[in-house]
Amino acid sequence: MEIQKEFDSIISKTQGLQAIIVSDKDGVILIQSTNPAFTLDSIDSSLATSFAVACDQIGKIGLSKNKSITTFYKYHQIIQFNYHPLIITFIADKNSNTGYLLNIGAEFENQLSTIANSIINSE
């Protein structure tokens, strides 16, 4: 699949980026690409579902629709994009360039629009 190859290429080229996951709001993973040295064992589907809930809550403060949330942890950072009905998750090292990851994540919206539209039409 073309998009899978592109994700693999982005991971190999981007310093510190460990995983890209495309899922729906229920946490069902559609596309996933990870650095071979990184395991996703400790991350379950609640990552996407809790993001969907957080987006709903943040939307209530009146600053229009939430686009992304960046979370910093002790060793990692997680950047999640809300491209309804898809959720894109980047898992990266804490020292990775957050601005760059936000830039490449923003470019995904058009590329994934075909998948997003087909999900919307099937609902």
Binding site: N97, T98, G99, Y100, L102, N103
Partner: peptide, 17 residues
């Protein structure tokens, strides 16, 4: 972290990274 704090003129915030 490459997060733009402010910009003006021909350099846009995408260049912060």
């Amino acid at each position: 972290n490459g997060l733009c704090l402010g910009c003006k003129g021909t350099i846009n915030s995408n260049k912060a990274a």
